[in-house]
């Protein structure tokens, strides 16, 4: 990192970084190291003694059907959310980029769900799909489809996917639109002069040029589905019915605060940290270098 024309002072820089560094040490580094430490310890049922158990906690987790179920649920959930949110946002962004009249109005009307808290988004959708009073649940029943996400695991999953997607579309939309507007118009006009139709231009010019944005968004959406959707799960399904929507983050919370399994929860935290770190590395290393044409 380049050091520029600057100041020399023995004390001042330390005072300046102190607040950030102290908070980081106390609330980030220390707890993370505690999680690492606890993940190789086991506590007796009365919390009196702890002993070193090596990787036993990890082995126990990876053999636990509940954890494997949670992995599976998380995979289904994040793939569905990312695919739906990216697909719909791309469709809307391409449309908004095409229209001349009203483009700003559409933009304003599409970006605001970003501001809605995940837990609140969950409540909105839960109300629509409430089996006894929800408008959409009622319409589905009228069509002969029996909706009750409190009993049916697949329906519960669909509901949390819908709520999570609804909230994420606006974020993806903003980035896709910015990406589309950065594509030089001359390229598209040149292709049009060469006789490429609208669809041809989309698939051979616009989409490849948009791929860095899309790849970046894919990573962000997976991170979102993994970690930021806790509020949706907690407020809509609480992981149920029968653990059908118990994503990893929810399970860490549940095992730590409801089931009080310290070592197990710490080991799960460590696995989650590994997932976040690898996703962040992917984002930094590959996103900008590999995908450009």
């Amino acid at each position: 990192m380049r050091v520029r024309v600057g100041y020399s002072n023995k004390v001042l820089p330390y005072i300046l970084v102190a607040p950030q560094v102290i908070i980081t040490l106390v609330f980030f580094i220390w707890p993370a190291s505690q999680a690492l430490y606890q993940s190789v310890q086991r506590q007796d049922p009365f919390g009196l003694r702890t002993r070193f158990v090596g990787l036993d906690n990890f082995a126990a987790i990876l053999e636990d059907p509940g954890y494997l179920n949670s992995l599976y649920v998380t995979a289904i959930f994040s793939i569905s959310v990312a695919a739906l949110a990216l697909g719909l946002a791309l469709l809307l962004a391409v449309s908004a980029d095409r229209v001349i009249r009203g483009a700003t109005a559409y933009k304003t009307l599409l970006i605001w769900p970003y501001a809605v808290a995940p837990a609140v988004a969950g409540v909105l959708w839960m109300f629509l799909f409430n089996p006894t009073i929800g408008s959409v649940a009622f319409a589905l029943k009228a069509l002969g489809y029996d909706w009750n996400h409190l009993l049916d695991g697949n329906q519960a999953m669909l509901l949390v996917v819908l709520a999570a997607t609804w909230k994420q579309i606006s974020y993806n939309f903003i980035f896709f639109l910015a990406g589309l507007q950065a594509i030089p118009k001359s390229l598209i006009e040149a292709a049009a002069i060469d006789g490429a139709g609208r669809n041809r231009r989309f698939w051979t010019i616009i989409l490849p040029l948009l791929s860095p944005t899309a790849f970046f968004l894919l990573v962000v959406n997976v991170v979102y589905a993994f970690f930021d959707t806790f509020g949706i799960i907690h407020s809509v399904t609480s992981g149920g019915p029968a653990r059908a929507t118990e994503i990893l983050v929810y399970k860490v919370y549940y095992d730590a605060f409801e089931a009080l399994d310290l070592g197990g929860s710490a080991a799960q935290s460590v696995i989650l940290m590994a997932i976040v770190i690898s996703l962040t590395v992917v984002q930094f290393r590959y996103v900008e270098r590999r995908v450009h044409y």
Binding site: S8, A35, F227, Y253, F257, S265, A266, M273, T280
Partner: peptide, 27 residues
Amino acid sequence: FRFPLRMVFFWMIFITLMLPVEVRILP
């Protein structure tokens, strides 16, 4: 400023980016 530990602090701050509260809830 040019001071010892500058890069250490820089990386320490960088690490916080990777540790959302959701992954270190209990500690």
